[in-house]
Simulated assay, not measured.
Amino acid sequence: MTTITGGTLNELFASAVRLTIDGDKVSPRGMDTRELLDVRLLLEEPRSRLLHAPPGRVLNTAFAVAETVWILSGSDAPWIYEFNGQLRQYAEDDGILRGAYGPRMRCWDGSVDQLALALSTLRGDPDSRRAVIQLYDPARDAGGHRDVPCTLGYRFHLRRGRLHMATTMRSQDLWTGLPYDIFAATTLHELMAGWLGVELGEYHHHVDSLHVYERDLDKAVAVLDEAVSSPGKLPSLETPWEGFDALLADVRSGRMVDHPGWDIMAAVLASYQQWKRGHRDAAVRSAEGVGGLLGEALCAWYAILRSR
């Protein structure tokens, strides 16, 4: 196993790129790829979850926030395409992404809220090894639909007053997917620690195949210097379990919820909705008003969009 450690996602990403670009050359589905097998990525500060390495790697910050809300709320609704239209290519003819994580986490087999179950498991037995959220479903995913989850599942372990989280991936596109996957997973990690009233521990991201496609290789090499700097922690998102789903619904609509961290998330979504409606100057002014790292990153994303 290859272990890569970083205090922030920027540090973790840079180290992972350095190793993966020298990985084995493979071509699954005919796509040339550099690959490392059996990799463990360890993020020491899960709230340093935003990859921001301009000008080489700038995330669609609004999509990072939107996907996180989409997953946590248990949704597979097509509103997510407003924030990332490229996802449509993986949807079925009815427009639904069959591999969406949200319904699997919040309503497995139509009835099991695995998030609530994991929380109650740890509340009942803090030393439990059974706080598991399963996402990959052979009954659905072996059938060959377009969207097969890369994430197999999440696990939580509460030890010595700190909650640690582990994610297992069968496959991880380092350049495109990893920054968004870790943003969403570490948000879940922080929330679970808050619901349990314990300290936030380490985040472990286990990947069977960590890879960079050859088409992204030059961009990945070029971003290394920018990715080393550390942007720091995002504002706390801890919030009570009671009323959590209602809070997510408000944030998704861009409404303020009287919570500093979640109000920033809502402001990011509201700004991007302005952009999509064609009110671009207003969207930029809104992003500037968001402030902090998320606001800065959203402004950088708008600059990328305007340059295209």
Rank of each mutant, 00 (worst) to 15 (best):
L41C: 13
R160E: 06
S271W: 02
L200H: 00
C299P: 06
M256T: 15
W275T: 04
A193N: 00
R252L: 05
V58A: 06
S48I: 04
L87G: 12
P235Q: 06
A193M: 02
G232A: 04
L36T: 10
A283V: 12
E238A: 14
P240N: 14
L178S: 01
S48G: 03
P138N: 05
G153T: 10
F13Y: 13
S271E: 05
Y90D: 00
V39N: 01
R308L: 09
I182T: 12
L174E: 04
Q172N: 08
F83E: 03
A266W: 01
A220H: 00
K219M: 11
S253W: 14
M1S: 15
L200I: 13
G102C: 14
L119E: 10
L36A: 14
C150E: 03
D137P: 10
L135Y: 02
I182D: 13
T20V: 11
W108S: 02
E202R: 15
L36R: 12
K219S: 11
L217K: 04
A246S: 08
S27R: 10
E92H: 03
T20Y: 06
H279R: 15
F83V: 15
D225Q: 10
L237I: 09
V284K: 03
D22Q: 09
E226R: 14
C150M: 13
L12P: 02
D225F: 12
W275K: 03
T3H: 09
V221D: 03
Y213P: 05
A249Q: 09
S15Y: 01
A53D: 01
T33E: 04
H259G: 07
A283I: 11
L200T: 03
D281L: 14
G85T: 14
E67F: 00
L196P: 09
T168M: 06
W175R: 06
V39Y: 02
D137A: 08
G177W: 06
Y302K: 08
V26D: 10
L217Y: 08
H205W: 09
Q86G: 06
A220P: 02
E226D: 15
A282S: 11
E288A: 15
S27D: 15
D38N: 15
Q273P: 13
Q274H: 06
A53F: 14
A222V: 03
A16M: 04
Y272C: 01
Q89W: 08
L188V: 08
D263R: 01
A249E: 11
S120V: 05
R40G: 14
R215A: 11
Y180F: 12
A16G: 08
V268C: 03
S128C: 08
G23L: 08
D93P: 04
V268W: 02
V221M: 04
S230G: 07
L305T: 07
E11K: 06
E11S: 06
R255P: 10
T5E: 10
L117E: 07
S229A: 13
P28C: 15
L115N: 08
L87S: 05
M169S: 04
